[in-house]
Write a protein that binds this DNA or RNA. Structure first.
Lengths: 205, 205
DNA sequence: ACCTGAACACCGTTCAAGT
DNA sequence: ACCTGAACACCGTTCAAGT
């Protein structure tokens, strides 16, 4: 039994889509140990899941080589975090809202702020813009991960396609495009945010 | 016992910050009925919470008169939704990721898309931009509501203020501003998104 | 030093029985 | 028609006892 083995086993339970989901008791079973043995290594369930979250942040940054163009680099950074969150949807909802206060998070924050400094922003605006950027990424990560298993795109499209024209005139006027809202808006939002940040950088630079 | 009374009582339990939180069993107790009586009115706990969520969407739009300037109107729309979500933080996390497929949601979508049509966007881009806008709002609503009770701004600031300079040079370079990341980036992100959408509208208009 | 296991105080949901 | 209550299959966490 060790921190590392516990984190790895917890991740396996969380990610198995056919499995019964994660619980401390099931983690104990999977480890072949009494569930309460885990309290020797983590304060409680939250603490353990924070460690798993930090592991995923680390994975998302593995092999990341920032592109010389800060905007392209930041875009890839965001997409990596988002994609890794979607790969672990049951943790994304939990992990996105929490700061892990661990090494992998520190490194990611340092990289992101460094990219915006390179873009020419002073300390205050680099921090402000990085904060908006990373929370947009985490917000969409949580939203899309939580929504995917529960929202039916087909049902959504069916309902919105058949709303009465007189009561919902704006929806009626965009009927042939409403289906696109069943997917994720993450990349659209990310690109809008990055273009606004780039415009700001251009005005300052 | 009635749908309305159950929803109202559930909301009271969910919102009481000193209370023990929501559970079906406690809802039964608060209603003076057996917990299982609630299954006469709602399929299950999810179904009941979806009804509470729709109620909150409705509340957030009550008395909303869109400003003639679409950008100001959209900003207020977003802030209303966000603020109402923060008033019910224990529900925000649940509700943000779900489509309620009920009247209050339909009306809000119609209003939002109408505002972007008024800004001059064609159907395709009005839908695309509304989608990015509303999911940014909901993503931040979920993120901030979930994070508030669990993240300690003081601890966050303390940890990030004392990271070693040589390992985290970018953080070191913005030390005097890092504390601002303990708050919410919602309005910064919202304004960046709106300015990018406005720039697009200007290029088209 | 590390782990076990009983115990405590909870969950959501089903279903037969009551009124 | 509507509600109750026992039962089922779970939770996270504490703490005394074991090795």
């Amino acid at each position: 039994l060790s921190e590392e083995l516990i984190v790895r086993t917890a991740m396996r339970l969380i990610d198995d889509p056919d499995g019964p989901g994660f619980s401390l008791r099931r983690l104990g079973l999977a480890l072949g140990a009494d569930p309460t043995a885990i309290y020797r290594y983590f304060e409680n369930t939250d603490d353990l899941l924070a460690a798993v979250t930090d592991q995923i942040i680390g994975d998302s940054q593995a092999g990341y080589e920032p592109h010389p163009d800060w905007r392209i680099a930041l875009r890839e950074f965001g997409i990596r975090v988002y994609r890794h969150a979607q790969r672990h949807p049951r943790l994304a909802v939990f992990g996105a809202a929490r700061v892990s206060l661990r090494a992998n998070e520190f490194r990611a924050v340092d990289t992101g702020i460094g990219l915006l400094r390179r873009a020419g922003f002073d300390p205050e605006n680099a921090v402000r813009n990085y904060h908006a950027f990373v929370d947009l990424v985490l917000g969409f990560a949580a939203l899309d991960a939580a929504g995917a298993p529960v929202n039916s795109p087909a049902r959504w499209t069916a309902v919105y396609s058949s709303l009465p024209d007189d009561e919902y005139p704006a929806v009626a006027g965009v009927r042939e495009h409403i289906h696109s809202m069943a997917g994720s808006a993450f990349e659209t939002a990310l690109d809008l945010l990055l273009s606004a940040i780039a415009a700001q950088a251009a005005r300052r630079g």
